[in-house]
Amino acid sequence: MARTNDLILRTTTALIAFILLGFSVYLFFAGHNKPGGGFIGGLMASAALVLMNMAYGLDVIRKVIRVNYLYMIFTGLLIAVGTGVGSFLFGAPFLTHNFGYFQLPILGRTELATAILFDLGVYLTVIGVTMTIILTVAADREESE
């Protein structure tokens, strides 16, 4: 089969993957007051990773992004459980969340909630599960040949 040239796909991927990752981070932080949250943000980040895998191939991306997605699921679940267990330190029931107002350097007076730590756990778990499923299916065929 003739070699095909993927120059347009690769160039657009190099530009669009950053927009996708930025949109994913925006959705992750917008989840408190607007549509968004950890789940859809994680799906967007994994969409960016899938696009990079489609454009550059499995081996290249595995060299560039050295992340074991199974460990990423583990880390996400650990963070999510940790925010639940952490409420025991303050004598509160399991999964009690709190918030407060802080004076940040650039952003000014900001409301910071501990729910974002739970959302971070959801985010990492969703990325890990999605990428594990897709990359396992993608790497399946050529190993058996």
């Binding site: 796909l9 489609m54 550059y56 191939g57 081996d59 993608a138 790497a139 050529e142």
Partner: peptide, 20 residues
């Protein structure tokens, strides 16, 4: 992303290749 995946499948038969 869906259109790129469909186009790659129609063109090459695989969506995510191992080594390009």
């Amino acid at each position: 992303i869906g259109t790129v995946a469909l186009a790659k499948f129609l063109e090459k038969g695989v969506i995510i290749e191992r080594d390009m």
